[in-house]
Simulated scan of single mutants.
Amino acid sequence: MTSNPIKTPGPTPQAEEEIPLPPPENEVNLANLAIPLGETILTLNLEGGPVYGILQRSRAMTAQSDYFRLQFRGYARAVGAHWQLLEGDDSRFHAVYNHAWVRLDRPSQTVTFGPKSGVQCSQALQGSGLDTYLFGNVIAWAKGVCPDYAIAPGLITMGQTTSEEERMQKHAFYAGQAFQFEWQDQTQRSALYFKDKVSKLLGVWNKEAIREFGGEEMLKMLAGQDEARAALQQKLEQLESAHDSLKRALQKEKSTSQILTGVLIVAAIVAIWAVI
């Protein structure tokens, strides 16, 4: 009778250690790597007159990240028939004002929206809806690229002198894009905005307040202006011709009147002589 060999248990396999994910890349470094993709002319409708400026799109791609940014610089405000050139923060691509960005982190499959302190407009562009336009566009871009990515929560802070109306506007700004918004303290000086997935955001803005001009539309507008200018030039030439004709007629009438006056004077003198 043969006995079965006794099997001794082998070493149990050790659990595989999870490899930690790399930290997200710094958005400042990504901004320095960003390459312009193109520019568009924007018109912002404000009470003092429309403002015209340049919107620039730029993007940076690395093995870990995809970074997309929108920046706006104002050019001039139209006041009646005159243009007032903008200056300072309103007229240049800025690292604080009039821009928005989004960073995709592939290892963690998360998205971060910025600026982290919130989109801010420079003084002359406040109330134009530019902040909603910029934020809505980077959201729309992210929805098209990574709709299933999670969203890293954002924290914003408010100043001590912030009014109740300003706090309500800040709440409405994020809620208008379908973010959840929660104040983090009783004084409502800091708040968290968050959402679980990019696809659940809206990415909307007021298309009546801000208008984009593409290349073809600009050419059509320039062609229309040239046609209107040619029509005005033709009308001006017709008016000048009519003015010259009227001027000649008046000069002829003046000459005729002078001749008649001379004749009348001569006749009067002859009559006086005849009486004498």
Rank of each mutant, 00 (worst) to 15 (best):
F68K: 03
L86Y: 00
N98M: 01
V138K: 02
M61S: 11
I54F: 12
M61L: 14
G127Y: 01
G49I: 00
A124K: 07
G127I: 03
A81F: 09
F135S: 06
Q123M: 12
E47V: 07
V79H: 08
G74Y: 03
V51Y: 02
Q84E: 15
W141G: 03
I156N: 03
K116W: 13
S128W: 02
E47T: 11
G48K: 15
D89T: 13
P115V: 13
D89L: 12
E39H: 11
G114I: 12
P153Y: 06
V102Y: 04
P115Y: 11
G38K: 09
P115F: 11
A100Q: 03
G127A: 04
L46H: 00
G114H: 13
F68N: 01
Y97N: 00
R77D: 01
Y75M: 13
Y149E: 09
I35M: 12
M158R: 00
G127M: 04
K116G: 14
C121A: 15
R59C: 08
A142C: 09
P50A: 09
F135W: 11
N137D: 07
L155G: 06
A124T: 11
C121G: 10
D66L: 08
W101L: 11
W101Q: 08
I41W: 12
G129R: 00
N45A: 12
T112M: 13
S108T: 03
A100H: 04
D89C: 08
N98C: 02
L70D: 04
K143G: 01
D131L: 05
G118Y: 03
F135I: 09
D90S: 01
S108F: 01
R106E: 10
V145N: 02
L130S: 00
Q64H: 09
E39V: 11
R59M: 14
S91Q: 05
A95I: 05
H99K: 06
G74I: 05
G49P: 04
G48N: 10
T62S: 10
G144L: 06
A60F: 12
F135E: 06
C146E: 11
A152E: 15
T62H: 07
A142T: 07
Q109D: 12
L104R: 12
V145I: 05
F72L: 05
Q71T: 07
G74S: 09
Y97P: 03
A150G: 14
H94Y: 06
Q56V: 13
C146A: 15
R59D: 06
M158F: 02
R57H: 14
Q71V: 02
S128I: 00
I151L: 08
P107D: 07
L104N: 08
V96M: 07
T112W: 08
V138A: 09
Y97L: 01
T112P: 06
H99L: 10
I35K: 15
I156Q: 03
R92D: 10
P115D: 13
A95E: 09
G136F: 07
N98P: 03
P36K: 04
S128Y: 01
P115K: 09
G127Q: 02
A140V: 09
N45Q: 14
G144F: 03
Q109W: 07
A63Y: 01
A152P: 07
Q64L: 08
K143P: 00
H94C: 06
L55S: 01
F135Q: 05
G144S: 07
R57K: 15
T157P: 02
L85A: 13
L134D: 02
W83Y: 14
A100R: 01
F93T: 01
A81T: 13
G88P: 10
D89F: 10
R57I: 09
